[in-house]
Design a protein around this nucleic acid. Sequence first.
DNA 1: CAAAAACCCTACCTTAGAGGTAGGATATAA
DNA 2: TTATATCCTACCTCTAAGGTAGGGTTTTTG
Lengths: 148, 148
Amino acid sequence: MRFTAKTEYAVRAIIEIALLDKDRPAQVKEIATRQAIPERFLEQVMAALKKDGLIESTRGSQGGYRLARSAEQITLADIIQAIEGPMQVIECLSEDLRNQKCEQVDLCAVRDVWKGVQSSLLEALDSITLAKLLEKYQNQRKAKAQQV
Amino acid sequence: MRFTAKTEYAVRAIIEIALLDKDRPAQVKEIATRQAIPERFLEQVMAALKKDGLIESTRGSQGGYRLARSAEQITLADIIQAIEGPMQVIECLSEDLRNQKCEQVDLCAVRDVWKGVQSSLLEALDSITLAKLLEKYQNQRKAKAQQV
DNA sequence: CAAAAACCCTACCTTAGAGGTAGGATATAA
DNA sequence: TTATATCCTACCTCTAAGGTAGGGTTTTTG
């Protein structure tokens, strides 16, 4: 039960974008160096975030990425699902395809339980907005600055 | 973000064990057929559950598996961690090894957030006991029986 | 108008883990 | 002593994770 590195990169990257958002778009190159993420790999992460409408891009010189909506309106659940696709804690929980084996009562009693677990998780992830992440991030920087 | 098939098998298997528990030990062969799980594969699942002390075995003829403690004292979290190891929603959340990159403030502010997500998930999983699973399972069987 | 600076699209590569099969050893009841 | 079970270990195949790479397109700017 683990989130992928790609997902973790996405979270760190979008924080970096949000920090600059008022001033100028953030570029893949600078995000990559600041966050120690492989640059070419990060490009693909950004593509996924853009595809899901979380960020928008401007091409060419002085271009880069901006948030597509406010930091209050972007949640951890949004980011994760942009990268990993719709949440599905076990295979037979997909909505679209009618499942084959699960007509048997025996197997499907458990299905509801998994559904409940998934809901709990999604709820937790939905309650964490990018705005909250930013706040935590900046508090920590202040605390660290005082130590020195 | 998905639990493995092995984990799902484990849950279904331990339900099957619990159903018989008062009368006699459950055998891999019968669990496998009743739950449509590959028999040889299920053997390995059982080994993991036993290793973590959730079930106990008797070998030889008329042998099989029993719960090692009451159904109230076994949770979904127990089962999952017996199969998949300690919960760790992202890599850098391991307790034992001192992390290398994460000394940088930038990266580690996010770490606490992941820790929180993990706690929420574990809490949800801990609240679901095997006893509850059994109850749901048997209710569903009754409901299905009435339909016919 | 050309060149630099960005994003964009697609293909490919390597490795680890998931999911499962298989052989045979060992313990126990009948 | 034989049938019935668990136990231990090795192996196999396929997919996804994680990353690299080549080259294209758009936009600013000197």
